[in-house]
């Protein structure tokens, strides 16, 4: 379904979920859970938003049944570790490329996706100060390097 305009803030989390549908269903599940919770806070009253959220909830319930034997879904403390490890893995890959001055679309996407996954960690509770810093740094780096490459500049 098309994402209602009111849900612009979660469209990239939903796209990340789609990208991980097969690669890592646990990541897909928690990205959608984050989108569900955030969407309900933004607008669960207007007909188009409510319709979208009901469909998203259907999808989450189906995923939960399909992944019923996966501890990362059954036990949120395991899910928390799974998402945090994945986010840090993406962050460290991008950071290593950055330090090696290898600037390319993949490393930009890794920085950006890791920042989205640090958002997703908030479904488990308050973010640690370290993860707040990681999220800020990753989002800034993704934006900065993307702009440099677009303008033909070399990122410093």
């Amino acid at each position: 379904m098309a994402v209602p305009a009111q849900f612009k803030a979660i469209q990239h989390h939903l796209r990340t979920a789609q990208e991980h549908e097969k690669r890592d269903p646990v990541v897909a599940y928690y990205c959608r859970l984050y989108a569900m919770q955030t969407g309900m806070k933004v607008d669960s009253k207007s007909p188009e938003c409510r319709k979208f959220l009901v469909k998203l909830m259907d999808q989450l319930e189906t995923m939960k049944k399909e992944l019923s034997d996966n501890d990362s879904i059954n036990q949120e403390v395991v899910g928390n570790a799974h998402i945090e490890n994945y986010a840090l893995k993406m962050f460290l890959y991008a950071d290593n490329e950055d330090r090696a001055q290898r600037f390319h679309k993949n490393m930009i996407k890794s920085f950006y996706t890791s920042s989205l996954l640090f958002d997703v960690l908030s479904v488990f509770g308050e973010l640690s100060e370290e993860n707040i810093q990681h999220r800020k740094y990753a989002r800034w780096k993704a934006t900065y390097i993307h702009t440099c490459l677009k303008n033909g500049d070399t990122p410093q």
């Binding site: 859970l33 919770q37 309900m40 009901v54 319930e61």
Partner: peptide, 27 residues
């Protein structure tokens, strides 16, 4: 009509909240 619409919307919103709580085994 307005009040009926509003109560339908809030009932559906409650239903969504309950489904979310059940999904997270928080019921």
């Amino acid at each position: 009509t307005g009040s009926v619409g509003t109560s339908v919307a809030s009932a559906e919103q409650d239903e969504l909240s309950q489904r979310l709580a059940r999904l997270r085994d928080q019921v």
